[in-house]
Nucleic acid binder design. Sequence first.
RNA 1: CGAGAUGGCCAGGCGGCCGCGGCAGUGACGGGAGACCAUCGCUGUCGAGGAACGUCCGGGCUCCACAGGGCAGGGUGGUUGCUAACGGCAACCCGGGGCGACCCGCGGGACAGUGCCACAGAGAACAGACCGCCAGUUUCGGCUGGUAAGGGUGAAACGGUGGUGUAAGAGACCACCAGCGCCGCCGGUGACGGCGGCGGCUCGGUAAACCCCACCUGGAGCAAGGUCGAGAGGAGCCGCGAGGCUCUGCGCGAAGGUUCGAAGGCGGCCCGCUUGAGUUGCGCCGCAGGUUCGCGGUGAACGCCUUCGCGGGUAGACCGCUCGAGCGCGUCGGCGACGGCGCGCCUAGAUGGAUGGCCGCUCAAUGACAGGACCCGGCGUAUCGGCCAUCUCGUUCC
RNA 2: GCUCCCGUCGUCUAGGGGCCUAGGACGCCGCCCUCUCAAGGCGGAAACGGCGGUUCGAAUCCGCUCGGGAGUA
Length: 145
Amino acid sequence: MLPADARIRSSRDFGSALKRGRRAARGGVVVHWAPERHTESPPAQAAPATPSEAGANRTARAGFVVSKAVGNAVVRNKVKRRLRHAAAAELPHWPAGTDVVVRATPRAAERDFAELRRDLTEAVQAARSATGGRSGRSRERRSPA
RNA sequence: CGAGAUGGCCAGGCGGCCGCGGCAGUGACGGGAGACCAUCGCUGUCGAGGAACGUCCGGGCUCCACAGGGCAGGGUGGUUGCUAACGGCAACCCGGGGCGACCCGCGGGACAGUGCCACAGAGAACAGACCGCCAGUUUCGGCUGGUAAGGGUGAAACGGUGGUGUAAGAGACCACCAGCGCCGCCGGUGACGGCGGCGGCUCGGUAAACCCCACCUGGAGCAAGGUCGAGAGGAGCCGCGAGGCUCUGCGCGAAGGUUCGAAGGCGGCCCGCUUGAGUUGCGCCGCAGGUUCGCGGUGAACGCCUUCGCGGGUAGACCGCUCGAGCGCGUCGGCGACGGCGCGCCUAGAUGGAUGGCCGCUCAAUGACAGGACCCGGCGUAUCGGCCAUCUCGUUCC
RNA sequence: GCUCCCGUCGUCUAGGGGCCUAGGACGCCGCCCUCUCAAGGCGGAAACGGCGGUUCGAAUCCGCUCGGGAGUA
């Protein structure tokens, strides 16, 4: 599965990954792809308190968000486990320091493992190849109008 | 064989590979004086439920509050038991349903009081009289009196049936029945039941309406609660005590100044000008670098700061955290719930929260409902399918 | 974890034992008016979350259940 090191575990990290990450959706999942932040400059006072020990030699991490809309506890757990398994297979291909948050949509409840894995792979690919960050996309959207 | 009733049990099985969480052992690397700690690997072992669910009750545990009594508020409601306790369970009683096995019931009190009973109907609660029946009277429309058997209304109408009686009638009287109350005897721990007698002859329903009665009830919840315990960014966690110091930051730069000066004077301040000195400052942090003893130095005290000690405590970490009203088997007591005794067993403890992926064999099958979060006892609800035991009714055969 | 509240036409709501065959507003449908549309007028369809109980009678009272929401640590 996924060792504890390769999981996003604090609410703070989830929040930043969701905010910074590029988003792409496929089938039952939505992927937020947040590459390593190289400019750690501005909030230097938060350095020792952060649990994510922002060293560059950190492995890539994945986190999962499965909301109540997906199903009851059994269904939610099953979806989470399958996503974790799929992510464990993908993880070696990701650059170190990357945070990836995977959200499950209600459709994920009906998908079997093979479909879920394909959804994840394609969504990650789409998010990685997307053109810029959030600012680039919004500029693009604004200019034709 | 068919149709049912009740109680109990199971929750696919076996195996392989790769992973995940806890514990134990062990190895490697790193840190440490050491105890040991962190990470990774290997081996072994354990790893969700009958409802883990909903959170409707009860308890344990923890903290807070508390002289005693009463009221208010909330809850329970046949009896006797079981239990740590309960609104749970068992047996029994009463009422209702079913041919039956069995099932269902928030099942105290309506002469303590108050309220409400729509529509219909004459009348819906200290009774009263529409049609009728009977008697009297009459201007033949009716009026007065008697009566409550018959009609009609309603969920419910002041006992029912038959007779005696009467102008017509009526518990007015009689017999039986139903109901109520009282007394006696018998059975039962008791709720209550059975039998006999007497009484008045009869009294609506609703308390899951207010209420009355009896009994129970302090509040919060493991995010409870406890232990340990940072302060970098100069002077930044808070408090107390003791001591020290009058020191003055960092970077750049060759150099950072302290009783003749970066002092002094003038303009309200920022700031500028002037005299003096002079090679000569710039940026950042920050607004503490001071007060009093007449004053700048000197000295003293206090404060700031700093050092040491003690206490509290935020972030955070750890404990609480799983051996318990525990489970299994046997035996004894009890109708039973349950209890006593003996033997055996140890069975998740996570913190973004551990069970997933691939494959083989097997059963008709993909398997139903569904995932711990302090722990127990119940209740309620969801649920594919299967098995066992006892019992009832019907049919057929012996 | 604890506590509380609310479910009524498509939407917002009234009604808290009988007067309810459940009222109102907006929306919807039909007709009238107009050359047509709007406005206006007339008429109509449309609901008590579910199951059980108490009562003669339940949207209303009680229990369970389903769904939604709020507060607090």
